[in-house]
Design a protein around this nucleic acid. Structure first.
Lengths: 347, 347
DNA sequence: CCGATCTTGGAAAGCGCATTCAGAAAGCGG
DNA sequence: CCGCTTTCTGAATGCGCTTTCCAAGATCGG
């Protein structure tokens, strides 16, 4: 708790009254002119705006919120902001929010810990006017129920809610086709001739992981794949490393590895490099996402592009849309990007 | 403008009064118990807390702010959140802020455009309780004056202010030794035997760029460097590419390239790869920062590590510290990280 | 057992703004 | 030139909370 009010002193910030006085109108008129609430003659509007400008006045959002409801603040829940996937989404969100005069409040959500509620609570406590959930949903029904209850309570209180990447809640959503994207990656390897494939997967408590896994399953089932081995680990570079180590040690015959996201793929590449296993000559590797650095890895990563920044922008636009109407779902496409990390299996 | 108040309806959120009633105390006592304002007996405090918990009450920060001053929101200004440098800083900031019950509002600041004021204004308009400026300062005195005036006005109004990476304003700061870090990178190349070096630099309107450039100058002057060529471009991957192209075309004899940050170095590596110029056999490359992916580039990037996440954490701790006292400056160290992208020049 | 000290309650004043409502100014036809 | 409608305006109210002020009750030492 910050006991700031103790050192209270009239902050010199100009108030609406000051603007009204300078413009020679009533505060009601000034308010209407500034927030567009009612009709004010053009001449007066201009005078008010000029006065506001001269005083470099900015409305106090807290006062406005207190009087009127929610705020022009957009809450964004991510797992880790320093994961390029979320960073790119956040970039898109911040861009669009800024264009609309909204600010963005970022909160961190644990992938696994029970404290993942804290972030939503915090954002809800802040009375944000809109909320974007960029982390995927949870498979654990109990946990999902708790989180979703919190989210639905938020929506019920009038806040706009947008999910990125899952449909666990009946709200607006921006949906990549996780099943399809993973399937494309798998099919690419299969088309190259790979028949013994390892899958580096995140914890199957995340819907993203489950969906992508399902896509790989489908591809494998549709084709004639001899062996498909799964290794689960944290959805991070280190998780990718750990899973790769296990895979290589237990199944030396694999000729290809699919990582369920680029971050894990990065870890896989690093292990392969350390062990002197040439990629793609001995083992092919693919990721999913196409984060910006994928093209600069060693070797450049074959992956499936998801338009993260665009997803962030679309989510922000949905979130900023006036409330009401049916939940909208925007599906975004994906695209196989073949680079240097995949090739036919060794003869 | 969001005209939300039109659809106004008493949001069901519990108010302080509800808590007070449930706990059987006065609102004055409830307020004291919740915000720690005065002395309340342990027994009553517990009862109030339980009541709040039962109602899942959270104080309305806007009401609190309106009554008491600033908010428990930390503003963070970055250039681009999807630049790993800033993303890692943001991660540190969010972590510490969360531990203290503060939320983080991220705003984007243009590196060059005059609109860079918009972000500060927005954050200030939001009455954030603390502000961290992660972007570097500007060399352009006029622009600096405008921005700094805005920042000083903010500090004067009681907000805590922390700068990361520059000292343009007399506030708390977390300072990497940009001069020293760049010098270390240059000295490494010189020690390897390079005598014709290209420098890929950002726009010299940024103090970070100027400082790092100065470090290279010093190293070059202290040693016997035949040729040192500068190419300025945007402080991004694409900027790095452009600068590299210019450098290679105009000075084919260069044996080493220093990029003033890893992002530009990434661009440099990509150009060299496209042209089939082997790194480090024909040309060595270094960066500065050691962003997470530096180790996974092709080839792994020799660079100078700056502890971004730690800088973010320290900045947040400074920002959350109770106000008052002399401006504190935390200097953070750096460390040369030699990887595969540097080697002695070709014979 | 009484006066001094501590704790709590009740009431009320704002913080800055949006909004309601009645009333004033302006515009119009007759 | 009058009475009416259409704009616009100005004063007042409340959003939820912190804080101050004073009185009332509880506690304690002497």
């Amino acid at each position: 708790m910050a006991h700031r009010w103790q050192e209270r002193e009239r902050s010199g910030a100009p108030r609406l009254t000051d603007v009204a006085v300078l413009a020679g109108v009533s505060i009601a008129t000034a308010s209407r002119a500034l927030s567009g609430g009612g009709v004010v003659s053009p001449g007066l509007t201009r005078r008010v705006l000029e006065a506001a400008d001269e005083l470099s006045y900015t409305v106090n959002p807290h006062a406005r919120s207190l009087a009127g409801g929610l705020t022009s603040v957009l809450g964004l829940m991510v797992y880790e902001i320093d994961d390029p996937y979320f960073a790119e989404i956040a970039g898109g969100v911040i861009q669009v929010a800024g264009e609309h005069g909204w600010s963005v409040q970022v909160s961190h959500q644990d992938r696994e810990a029970a404290s993942d509620l804290a972030g939503v609570r915090m954002l809800r406590g802040q009375r944000v006017g809109a909320l974007i959930i960029a982390g995927s949903g949870y498979r654990d029904p109990a946990k999902n129920a708790t989180v979703n209850a919190e989210l639905e309570a938020y929506a019920a209180s009038g806040g706009r809610l947008v999910a990125i990447g899952h449909r666990d809640i009946g709200c607006d959503a921006v949906l990549p086709d996780n099943v399809g994207a993973a399937r494309v990656a798998a099919e690419h390897l299969i088309a190259l001739g790979h028949r013994r494939i390892g899958v580096i997967s995140g914890p199957d408590t995340l819907t993203t992981v489950v969906d992508r896994g399902r896509g790989i399953d489908r591809a494998a089932r549709a084709a004639d794949v001899e062996e498909i081995v799964w290794a689960h680990a944290a959805f991070t570079r280190d998780g990718g490393r750990a899973a790769t180590v296990r895979l290589l040690d237990s199944h030396p015959g694999l000729t290809a590895i699919i990582a369920l996201n680029d971050t894990m793929a990065t870890g896989a590449l690093s292990v392969l490099r350390e062990r002197g296993i040439p990629v793609p000559q001995a083992v092919s590797v693919t990721g999913i996402d196409d984060v910006q650095v994928a093209q600069d890895l060693a070797p450049a990563l074959t992956t499936v592009r998801l338009p993260m920044a665009s997803m962030g922008r679309q989510a922000a636009r949905l979130a900023l849309r006036p409330a009401g109407g049916e939940p909208t779902v925007r599906e975004v496409g994906h695209e196989l990007v073949v680079r240097a990390s995949t090739a036919p299996p060794p003869a």
